[in-house]
Simulated scan of single mutants.
Amino acid sequence: MEYNKLVAVSGLSGLFELISSKNDGAIVRSLNDKTTKFASSRIHQFSHLESIEIYTIRDNVNLAEVFNAMKADGTALPDVKDDKAIKAYFQKVYPDMDFDRVYTSDMKKIVKWFDLLQKNNIEVKLTEAEEEAAAEEETPAPEVKETPAPAKKSAAKTQEAAATEGEPVKKAPAKKAAAKKAAKKKED
């Protein structure tokens, strides 16, 4: 099972592996009990774990960074029923988190999800495309000097110029008229 196939489904607890998607929903497999079910998109919303970001005091970070910090810390996970213990845990593990905007309920979800990932031996890593995009953001792109191309007069500009000079404005032929002329030429 890969991290990039995991989704959170609104209204359903836990995490799910996205097996297949359809126009009206998706087929998902629960990480808790390995049951497979259809989740309708009319009732549920799907959030890929890779797309979830966490508020920090600097820039928002991907949820995978928080999971990796939790894994690197190695501290035992707090009891999800103890709000103070959860907040203290995240203050120790990820102190850059913006605790005014990240609610305790969100922190509880993160702890539950991390526990599920650990139980299912899922390696938390972003896909290569997202890693490359993050690397491009960190390194500035070299400046490219462009030489301006010679300007071509468009039909709209020539009409504007004629209108300002007081000449009558000629309208461009409509597409239908051009199509009729082309069809007439083919007949001849």
Rank of each mutant, 00 (worst) to 15 (best):
P148V: 11
A182F: 11
D98Q: 04
R101E: 08
I54Y: 12
R58F: 12
I122H: 04
L15C: 04
E128D: 06
P78I: 06
A179C: 00
A161Y: 09
S10M: 03
A182H: 08
K81R: 10
S30I: 02
Y3V: 11
D24T: 15
V9I: 11
R58L: 12
S154H: 06
D106R: 13
D79E: 09
S41R: 11
A183V: 09
I86M: 10
D100H: 07
T127D: 13
E138V: 07
W113I: 05
A129P: 00
E128Q: 03
M1L: 13
E123F: 12
D188R: 09
K157S: 10
K185A: 11
E187L: 09
G74I: 01
N120D: 13
I86Y: 07
S154T: 15
V93Y: 01
L6H: 09
I86Q: 04
D106Y: 08
S20E: 15
Y103W: 02
S10K: 03
V66E: 02
K175T: 05
A172E: 10
V93F: 04
S51K: 14
K5W: 14
A156L: 12
K109N: 12
E137F: 13
K185M: 04
K145Q: 10
L12P: 03
A163W: 05
T139I: 15
F67A: 05
A39Q: 14
I54M: 11
G25Y: 01
E123D: 14
L117T: 09
P140D: 06
I54R: 10
K109Y: 08
F38E: 10
I27H: 11
E143G: 07
A133Q: 08
A64Y: 10
A133S: 05
V61F: 00
Y103N: 04
D82S: 09
K22F: 15
E50G: 15
K170W: 08
K87A: 02
E167A: 15
K108N: 03
V102W: 01
V124E: 03
V124P: 03
M1T: 14
D24L: 13
Y103V: 01
K37R: 15
A8K: 15
V66I: 12
K180W: 05
E143S: 10
N121C: 00
I110A: 05
E146I: 14
Q45W: 01
S13G: 10
P78S: 04
G74P: 00
Y103C: 00
K109P: 00
V80I: 12
D82Y: 04
F38L: 14
N4G: 06
E167M: 12
V124F: 04
Y55K: 15
A172P: 01
A64D: 08
K176W: 05
H44L: 03
N23C: 01
V9P: 04
D33W: 07
S154Y: 03
R29M: 12
A39L: 13
K108A: 02
F90R: 06
A26W: 05
K87M: 00
L31E: 07
Q159V: 06
I86E: 06
N4T: 13
N4P: 02
L117F: 08
S41L: 09
A39Y: 15
V124I: 07
D33N: 15
D96Y: 05
K37P: 00
P173D: 06
M97A: 07
A182D: 08
E137D: 11
M97C: 08
K186S: 01
D83R: 09
H48G: 10
E132T: 05
A141N: 03
A88V: 01
A178D: 07
A178I: 15
N32C: 12
